[in-house]
């Protein structure tokens, strides 16, 4: 009898270790009820939401690039942003973030996962910036009360980021679904638990109002280093890999002996001209890779795509000069 009880106890403990929500010290008691027991429980949800809403809102940003806009959320004082891959659209893209107070800051996209719709963006301006904590321990459970923020339809200072409250209605490994209604412009915005921790990033919606999909934070954690290192992960469908060989620099060169590549021609209005490369400059290296001759340079550039950023080390009048430019389309 005693032995059986002990076995049962151990079994329960091992399950509890993996899944028991009680281990989360910040967990709201109402989250352990299948439905709030009464108005008092509803008011507990409301009170929790109100207490964590201001810092959550301060870290929610609008991301503008090209014609459209999406949302994102700052997760470190130096300005690391999590967003959706279909918002950042690629690696090393120029993006403007509008902070909650209306301040605009320059950003560049880091890596993305085109299969799960997750991406990182870095603010280039100097911090500190308001940020939120992640649910790194993956405490979130089906049925938990959650809220979403986002700049629906674009940034609107008078309105602020709209907040929507709901429950987690479906939990899969790489997708969370909530009944917090999302719309265009919310993409890339944050989903929070009632402790104010970031649990997901808005990705897409279905036909019905209750179908709102988010990328769970565990998906970011899984690929953290690659995302931070600016890698393009996966083959879509949320972002299209830049096509190799479509990049255009716009220079003519010759091997001038002594292992140097001399610029002989500059295309009018080309990326090279716009970046200030001149006839007579010597090209020493691209992206830190030393180039021994014209052929090596051409081979390196052949793998580059339109819109990709490269760093060229030049020798001009005997002095080193570094130029960063974005390739055009061939």
């Amino acid at each position: 009898m005693k032995t059986r009880a002990l076995v049962f106890f151990l079994g329960l403990l091992s399950v509890a270790f993996a899944q028991d929500p009680q281990r989360d010290p910040k967990r709201l008691p109402v989250n352990d009820k299948k439905v709030p027991a009464g108005v008092e429980d509803m008011l507990a949800i409301e009170a929790a939401l109100k207490s964590v809403l201001p810092p959550a809102r301060n870290a929610t940003v609008c991301l503008e690039l090209g014609q459209g806009s999406g949302s994102g959320v700052i997760i470190s004082a130096d300005g690391l942003i999590l967003t959706a891959a279909h918002v950042s659209g690629g690696v090393a893209k120029d993006i403007t973030a509008i902070l909650a107070d209306g301040r605009k800051v320059k950003c560049e996209s880091l890596g993305l996962n085109s299969e799960t719709d997750s991406a990182m963006v870095k603010i280039l301006d100097k911090g500190p910036f308001p940020f939120v904590e992640l649910d790194k321990s993956d405490f979130t459970r089906l049925g938990d009360w959650v809220f979403s923020l986002g700049h629906s339809g674009g940034y609107d200072k008078d309105r602020g980021a709209g907040v929507r409250l709901g429950r987690l209605v479906k939990v899969a490994d790489s997708t969370l679904q909530s009944d917090c209604t999302l719309i265009g412009g919310d993409s890339g915005g944050p989903l929070f638990d009632l402790a104010g921790r970031l649990i997901g990033i808005h990705s897409r919606v279905g036909q019905r109002l209750g179908e709102n999909m988010h990328v769970p934070i565990r998906e970011f954690v899984r690929h953290w280093d690659d995302l931070a290192a600016g890698k393009f992960i996966g083959e879509g469908p949320f972002a299209e890999k830049p096509k190799k060989g479509t990049g255009f620099l716009g220079i003519g060169t010759e091997d001038s002996g002594e292992g140097k590549i001399r610029v002989t021609k500059i295309g009018r209005e080309s990326p090279a001209e716009n970046a200030g490369i001149k006839v007579g400059d010597f090209i020493v290296a691209i992206d830190g890779k030393k180039l021994k001759d014209k052929e090596a340079m051409q081979k390196y550039l052949k793998d580059k795509a339109a819109d990709e950023k490269i760093t060229i080390l030049l020798l001009r009048e005997g002095k080193d000069k570094e130029i960063i430019l974005r390739l055009g389309a061939r």
């Binding site: 299948k34 009464g38 509803m42 479906k170 009944d179 209750g210």
Partner: peptide, 20 residues
């Protein structure tokens, strides 16, 4: 199944919430 789903009566606008 690979995922878990919350039955409709428990959702934020489900019948059990409306009962409150």
């Amino acid at each position: 199944q690979g995922y878990e789903t919350l039955e409709s009566e428990y959702r934020s606008n489900g019948s059990l919430m409306h009962g409150l």
